[in-house]
Design a protein around this nucleic acid. Structure first.
Length: 658
DNA sequence: TTACCTCGAGATCA
DNA sequence: CTCGAGGTAA
């Protein structure tokens, strides 16, 4: 029986491959279904022979209660963008200057969701979303239902492959037809449908969505012994993966431009959406030579198709007062479809921009999605203009009516009334937000509600709220009140850094707050520091230090801190021991351009480990860290016999990945 | 900026 | 059933 089940599993896996990867089924669907049901029954009768690479797992297993976080073995970077021929040529020039003439692999840029698939000994073991590039979500159960993903490879490799999961247009249309028939809400576009499907906690639902995937890169090429991107893709084909067949290897930038031109005209002929073309240096040794910048490889670039432009009416300009008093204008538009979504508003950034573009209320305007996400007003259509009046920047704050000012070296127009209610509310929203005190159940709406009810006028008042205050409010029942009060109570224990972020000192965000809190440990200490001491903290400059001093010396700030203390809000930070003291007593000199770190980050790493950074090389220097294009300092180091580390060595010594 | 999923809870109706 | 919050992705 074991052999029979195994044979059936193999046969169905082969049919799957033929259908979903090769797109060339050798048997009718009915035959597939018949065999699949047979296998389901056999596996039910003999569960000891059911494996996790059996085709039956593709229907989806147990419902999850959440997605786990997973750390990527190597970060999933994004690519640099090119929007026109010039930037593609500039990319080519940079490449050739570094490594000489190269071939390029051109691939379609699929509009879906980036995912990573991990295989161990040839078996699919984990699939994850891109997340922030470092940590993503474990969506293995949903990915298993994608029939184009091989559950078992031809060879028993252990590696990670990356690709783009997507919903083919025909599947999207069918799905929406079915949803319409059932009276359910329709999906806006295939990308959203694919994203939604992969976020289902019930893999059975995801399994019914007919997703597919194209794989395009391999994390660790050593196992594949490929020397080019072309070979790597062919090896992926050989292992049973689905790669995109429209790729083309070209000799030079002219070939790239040719390919780009070709697909710019034919993107609609495909049965999946693409949003551009990815160009990669083909030879892996050239890729290695080119290396990476802090956020993307230097050997690849993404050409983005020109953003779709549409015309709509600019109905009004909305003014919002931020927590710093900056008044920012937003265009309220007659909703229109652009690039797959409905756009109703677009930031106008500042009043200078409105003036420059001469945007007026009631204009017909051209809008587009810059970088495919953020909508922007390109320009008004002057021919269609009738009697629209020139738009005047506000002289009064829309929140409190106080006069506005425009500082010499800023573009923003500001309300300078410290008691401005709009600013107060924004400040409180910031205080309770995730990056700051993270009070669950206290979102924007509820903060406004509490403010309007006269219950909170500053963040200190949040800690004075009682059951009796909350219960009478709209949509505030027994349960919500209890939860909210508990969340407020819990927030008192936040470390000092969170409180610092929450207090909204200008230029002091998550990073600076952590540094300052770690350095001084308590709020009182911080408030007692002169500027000169603050700038001694690595990565804290004049601007931040000035801001901290100004804020912390203000009587209102002091009063607020006292009020928070009165409610026993924690004002201390647990100071972490330095990660290591490997560089204790050592003096470093940095020279040349580092690829993965900025100079400040490198400096911080050295200081964290107990070392010092000097400006010039002398006998007292212990190590010179040399980046690219290192100059005379490197020569001096060599003549003095000082050790020289390259960036990889430096990262390794600091315990970072190289 | 928009769209999607999930959760918890309040509101509504039978 | 509907709403708000919270999270994620492009």
């Amino acid at each position: 029986m074991e052999e029979k089940i195994k044979a059936l599993q193999d046969k169905l896996n082969r049919y799957n491959y033929e259908y979903h990867v090769l797109d060339a089924p050798s048997v009718p669907d009915s035959e597939y279904d018949k065999l699949l049901h047979e296998l389901i029954e056999l596996e039910a009768a003999y569960p000891e022979f059911k494996t996790d690479t059996s085709p039956t797992v593709r229907v989806g297993g147990a419902v999850l209660d959440r997605f786990r976080k997973v750390q990527h073995d190597t970060p999933m970077l994004s690519l640099g963008n090119a929007f026109d021929e010039d930037s593609l040529r500039a990319f080519d020039k940079r490449v050739r200057e570094a490594v000489g003439e190269v071939e390029y692999m051109c691939e379609l840029k699929i509009d879906g969701l980036a995912v990573s698939l991990k295989y161990e000994d040839g078996k699919f073991v984990q699939g994850a979303t891109r997340g922030d590039g470092t940590v993503g979500e474990d969506i293995t159960a949903n990915l298993r239902t994608i029939r184009a993903i091989p559950l078992e490879l031809t060879s028993s490799l252990s590696f990670e492959v990356r690709g783009e999961a997507y919903m083919p247009k025909p599947a999207f249309e069918k799905l929406n037809e079915a949803r319409e028939a059932k009276g359910e809400a329709l999906f806006q576009n295939p990308r959203n449908a694919a994203a939604g499907s992969l976020r289902q906690l019930d893999p059975k639902l995801a399994g019914k969505r007919n997703l597919s995937i194209f794989l395009y890169s391999v994390n660790d090429l050593s196992g594949l012994s490929a020397k080019t991107q072309d070979e790597a893709l062919k090896r992926l084909d050989g292992e049973g993966f689905k790669t995109n067949r429209e790729r083309r290897l070209v000799d030079d930038i002219e070939g790239v431009l040719d390919y780009v031109g070709y697909w710019s005209n034919r993107r609609n002929d495909l049965d999946y959406d693409i949003d551009g073309i990815v160009i990669k240096v083909n030879a892996l040794n050239a890729q290695e030579q080119l290396g990476f910048t802090a956020k993307s490889p230097r050997w690849a670039i993404a050409y983005k198709f020109p953003a779709e432009e549409v015309v709509t009416d600019l109905l009004d300009i909305e003014l919002t007062v931020g927590r710093t008093g900056a008044i920012t204008p937003t265009a309220l538009l007659k909703p229109v479809k652009v690039a797959g979504t409905t756009v109703a508003r677009a930031s106008l950034h500042n009043h200078e921009l409105i003036e420059q573009k001469d945007i007026r209320i009631n204009d017909k305007v051209i809008i587009r999605k810059a970088g495919d996400i953020i909508p922007e007003v390109v320009r008004p259509i002057l021919e269609e203009r009738t009697d629209q009046k020139v738009y005047k920047a506000p002289t009064e704050c829309p929140g409190c009516g106080h006069e506005t000012v425009k500082l010499e070296d800023e573009v923003a127009i500001r309300c300078i009334n410290p008691g401005c209610p709009a600013q107060l509310v924004e400040g409180m929203i910031h205080f309770v937000s995730r990056t700051a005190m993270n009070i669950d159940g206290l979102g924007e709406k509820v903060v406004k509600q509490l403010f309007d009810a006269g219950l909170i006028n500053d963040v200190g008042d949040i800690y004075a709220l009682t059951r009796e205050d909350l219960l009478p409010l709209e949509r505030m029942g027994e349960k919500k009140t209890t939860n909210l009060l508990e969340a407020i109570e819990a927030s008192k224990a936040n470390p000092l850094r969170k409180l610092l972020v929450g207090l909204g000192i200008r230029f002091v965000g998550a990073k600076a707050s952590e540094l300052i809190a770690q350095e001084f440990g308590t709020m009182d200490e911080i408030m007692a520091q002169p500027k000169e001491r603050l700038v001694e903290v690595p990565e804290i400059g004049e601007k931040i230090a000035d801001s901290i001093v100004t804020y912390t010396h203000h009587p209102d700030f002091r009063a607020l801190v006292d009020k928070l203390k009165h409610y026993s809000v924690n004002m201390t930070e647990e100071v972490q021991e330095a990660a290591s003291n490997a560089f204790e007593g050592m003096t470093f000199v940095l020279t040349g351009k580092l690829e993965q770190l900025t100079r400040n980050e490198a400096k911080a790493l050295i200081e964290d480990a107990g070392g010092k950074v000097a400006g010039s090389v002398s006998q007292k220097t212990d190590v010179v860290v040399a980046g690219e294009e290192a100059g005379s300092k490197l020569e001096t180091a060599q003549s003095l016999g000082v050790s020289v580390w390259d960036e990889a060595e430096f990262l390794e010594k600091t315990g970072r990945q190289s």
